[in-house]
């Protein structure tokens, strides 16, 4: 079996369309993960005790069950309780919630890195809890964890092919369909692999840049 370059070129546009969906799912999933994760980390640290505890249990649950099962669960169960989302939206939600649990732990490490003296200085100046988070704690807690969050972005990107299991036309699903039509899998799957490799490497580069930019900040004075 030899690699058919002409065939590869012919299927490239369809695969790129799939890749757009993949990137979309990753980007939106990451927005959900970053915001929901931050909210969970803040509630765990500063919210009422019962709520913090519940969030902690939820994080534990999400991290202890496979993403694929969470995907199937949302895909088949949400419609039954009257929530009708498109497969793509369901996939984004699942990716977002799943990675939010991991991001929450990363944020928590960053928040714990801010010394108690910073909280006390803010309190002594009369800052409200919200102002303390916004002006004092998060500006110090976030920069050091940006690289770790970036690593989860790459991990999520590499998990998006799971969305093919719930019929999302992301790049792997497109490759499988293409392969099934022509009985040639070498070219579509190779191309998909190369696409993931290229984007992952680019993302890793970006993260290194962020590390250089933010690694220095966030130390106590």
């Amino acid at each position: 079996m030899t690699f058919d370059w002409a065939y590869a070129a012919a299927i490239l546009p369809a695969l790129l369309e799939g890749l757009v969906i993949t990137v979309q799912a990753t980007a939106l999933g990451m927005v959900v993960a970053l915001t929901l994760g931050l909210a969970m980390a803040v509630v765990r640290q500063g919210g009422p005790r019962w709520l913090g505890w519940s969030v902690g249990q939820f994080i534990e649950f999400v991290r202890s069950t496979p993403l694929l099962i969470q995907l199937y669960f949302l895909f088949y169960v949400l419609p039954e309780i009257g929530v009708a989302l498109s497969p793509l939206a369901t996939g984004i939600l699942a990716l977002g919630v799943h990675y939010a649990a991991y991001c929450a732990e990363v944020y928590r490490a960053g928040i714990n890195g801010v010394s108690r003296g910073q909280w006390e200085a803010a309190a002594s100046l009369g800052f409200s809890p919200w102002q303390t988070w916004r002006r004092v704690v998060l500006p110090q807690a976030l920069p050091p964890v940006i690289p770790a969050l970036g690593n989860y972005l790459v991990a999520m990107f590499k998990d998006t092919p799971l969305l093919s299991a719930i019929t999302v036309m992301e790049v792997l699903q497109v490759a499988k369909i293409t392969g099934a039509e022509s009985f040639r899998y070498l070219e579509p799957l190779t191309l998909v692999g190369v696409m993931f490799l290229a984007l992952s490497l680019a993302a890793a580069q970006l993260i290194r840049g962020l590390e250089r930019r933010f690694g220095r900040l966030g130390r106590a004075a």
Binding site: G117, Q118, E120
Partner: peptide, 13 residues
């Protein structure tokens, strides 16, 4: 009241 701490606790950012 205002307070000055042993370890300064300036906002480093």
């Amino acid at each position: 009241a205002g307070m000055v701490f042993q370890h300064f606790n300036l906002f480093p950012h």
